[in-house]
């Protein structure tokens, strides 16, 4: 039986990648009036061969505890769940932009790495980056300018706009605090 476990990983030390991205958005891309904060998480959806959801979580917990395949416990904190939505835990003034590589090359490598160290239950892994974007004005469902703004933040379609996703190699979703998700690619 295949059970799914979602492993969410974030740095507990300063996330320099997020600082660079925020700096680029605010000063190089003219978003200083729109974006006030940024955070980043890596979400792994892991399909595990196990008898029950609990034993699947034990397999992943073992990988997390004993290896550096998904994280380094000295630098990262992590949570395990059976499902995860892009909008989980968002504050009212946040949206999440979720970026996935189209081919998932790094995901196959994670499965192979786990297998090489003797963890045989992991069957499939898929990875996405969850950028939590804190906006200057709280988003609202009726704002016609919201999706275009988020595309200018998230999708690199033109020189000077969009940072998180190159649409030729990645896909992007946006999740809203009111519990909705939409494709962000134009």
């Amino acid at each position: 039986m295949i059970e799914r476990v979602v492993l969410t990983v974030a740095l507990k030390v300063t996330d320099n990648e997020t600082l660079s991205a925020l700096e680029a958005l605010r000063t190089k891309m003219g978003m200083a009036d729109s974006i006030v904060g940024l955070a980043r998480e890596v979400q792994w959806e892991l399909d595990v061969e196990a008898d029950s959801p609990e034993s699947a979580r034990c397999v992943i917990a073992e990988i997390v505890e004993r290896t550096n395949v998904f994280l380094n416990p000295n630098k990262h904190r992590s949570t395990l769940a059976s499902t995860a939505h892009g909008y989980d835990g968002l504050d009212d003034d946040e949206v999440a932009i979720l970026v996935t590589d189209r081919d998932g090359a790094e995901s196959a490598a994670a499965v192979a790495a786990a297998s090489r160290i003797g963890v045989m239950g992991l069957r499939k892994a898929s990875r996405r980056i969850r950028w939590r974007v804190r906006l200057a004005e709280a988003p609202s469902p009726g704002d016609p300018g919201l999706l275009p703004l988020l595309r200018r933040i998230g999708v690199s379609s033109d020189r000077g706009t969009g940072l998180f996703s190159n649409p030729h190699s990645q896909t992007a979703l946006v999740a809203f605090p009111w519990g909705d998700e939409k494709p962000l690619d134009a």
């Binding site: 590589d101 090359a105 020189r159 969009g162 649409p167 030729h168 190699s169």
Partner: peptide, 12 residues
Amino acid sequence: PGKVEMGLARNI
């Protein structure tokens, strides 16, 4: 000109 038309993706 100026439109992103390709990507350089991770090696496979």
